[in-house]
């Protein structure tokens, strides 16, 4: 068969691994401040890894799409260093704070502009808002088959065969191409990208197309923002903790008593 053209959607977010103490909520400005570097959302990295594996087997081309108000190409170039062939940034001040439906709309416009594609991969959800909507809506907008929660993806005979995680185990499903698949972490971590590769890429001038709303139909009325009414730090979950002191033996004895009380 012909070599598959794969599109991977990748979102840039503050590192979700950052500990609790590095996240502050500004209630007045309704902002979350995360003291952590930007990374590619982990599930999107899984999606890219799945794409690279398909490319290793069948050849083809991987195009990464990333959208936002200010997308850092130093973060996104990691996708090229890992094995993607092209990167397109969808950047416009109007793209800030869009709700999921509008995000999917912008992505669908961009994908329609690319024209030829066989497979669209997204992460099952983004690591910041954890909504899990964009991939599924995007499939609806592109009017192509949609498979969620993939843990393994294979292409053969013009179809995509996916093992998707379901509550009782996994289900093997198949759809004709083009199709959209949302990828779960079971696919495997994105391969390591050596710094020397990243630096080599950063030094080399590489045209990275940036498409704004004007390039994508200029339909500003279609874009809607998230209507954030309030933002609060999480409720205090604290309880009065009784610290069990003493020697290990005493601690064990008292803890055993506590556990036995549960009966």
């Amino acid at each position: 068969m012909k070599e598959p053209q794969i599109i991977v959607c990748a979102k840039q977010i503050p590192d979700p691994e950052a500990p609790f103490s590095n996240v502050t909520v500004n209630v007045e400005k309704k902002q979350v401040l995360v003291d952590a570097p930007d990374v590619i959302s982990p599930y999107d990295e899984n999606a890219l890894e799945a794409a690279i594996r398909i490319k290793e087997e069948l050849g083809g081309k991987i195009t990464v799409l990333s959208m936002g108000r200010k997308v850092s190409d130093t973060v996104l170039r990691k996708t090229i260093a890992a094995g993607a062939d092209a990167l397109i940034l969808l950047e416009d001040p109007l793209f800030e704070g869009l709700e999921s439906n509008s995000v999917a709309y912008v992505l669908s416009c961009a994908i329609k502009k690319i024209v030829a594609y066989d497979l669209v991969l997204t992460g099952r959800q983004a690591g910041d808002w954890d909504s899990g909507q964009v991939g599924l809506i995007l499939a609806e907008m592109l009017d192509i088959p949609c498979i969620s929660m993939a843990r393994s993806i294979k292409i053969h005979d013009g179809a995509v065969v996916v093992e998707k995680t379901v509550p009782v185990g996994y289900e093997v499903v198949e759809a004709g191409l083009p199709a959209l698949v949302t990828v779960s972490n079971e696919v495997g971590e994105l391969r390591y990208v050596a710094r020397s590769k990243m630096l080599g890429l950063l030094r080399r001038p590489m045209p990275i197309p940036k498409w704004g709303l004007k390039d994508l139909g200029d339909n500003a009325e279609r874009l809607k923002k998230v209507q954030l009414m309030e933002l609060a730090p999480p409720a205090d979950m604290g309880r009065a903790c009784t610290i069990i002191e003493g020697s290990t033996d005493e601690q064990a004895a008292r803890l055993a008593a506590v556990l036995k009380e549960l009966r």
């Binding site: 979700p16 909520v25 009414m229 933002l231």
Partner: peptide, 13 residues
């Protein structure tokens, strides 16, 4: 909850 539960947002759509 957003940002892994580190913030709680109230929204309307």
């Amino acid at each position: 909850p957003i940002y892994g539960g580190n913030a709680i947002a109230a929204l309307r759509c």
